[in-house]
């Protein structure tokens, strides 16, 4: 069974190119064009790993998605799903939310710069979730 990657990004071209890379590696790819849509897909399709854009021009941006997944009861069954945040700007959560105690709550499992360094990205992803033969543990 192929591992499922959910790509949440408001740039369709970014999703298209990432999809082709992931599919070539044997991953199953789900796409969402907004944070809101991404959260819906999490509940519906139970992805194994999430690639998440930070700055999206939609009502729920990247950090909002991370926060919901990690702390809202609705998503409790998915709070362990690794999240890789991608962005074209170097802005850590500490810079985005200066002097906020809640910063710790939204730290993702990894950061990746856009455009993706594809070999490195695949290596990281493979480490977190191998493309094939994932054994689904009972949740």
């Amino acid at each position: 069974m192929s591992a499922k990657v959910l790509v949440i990004d408001d740039d369709q071209d970014f999703r298209v190119s990432v999809r082709s890379v992931l599919e070539a590696r044997g991953y199953e790819v789900l796409e969402a064009g907004s944070g809101h849509e991404g959260l819906k897909q999490v509940l519906e399709h139970k992805p194994d790993v999430i690639l998440l854009d930070i700055m999206m021009e939609t009502s729920v941006e990247g950090y909002g998605v991370t926060h919901a997944l990690k702390y809202q009861d609705e998503y409790a069954a998915h709070s362990h799903v690794p999240i890789f945040m991608v962005s074209s700007i170097e802005e850590s959560p500490d810079e985005r939310f200066p002097m906020s105690a809640e910063v710790e709550m939204i730290r993702p499992d990894g950061y990746l710069a856009k455009p993706l360094d594809i070999p490195r990205f695949l290596e990281l992803l493979e480490k977190a979730v191998p493309a094939k033969g994932t054994v689904k543990t009972a949740r």
């Binding site: 740039d11 970014f14 074209s88 856009k114 455009p115 594809i118």
Partner: peptide, 13 residues
């Protein structure tokens, strides 16, 4: 950067 990223990534792939 957003359009540039999209272009770069298409070309890279």
């Amino acid at each position: 950067r957003t359009p540039l990223v999209a272009i770069h990534q298409y070309l890279d792939v």
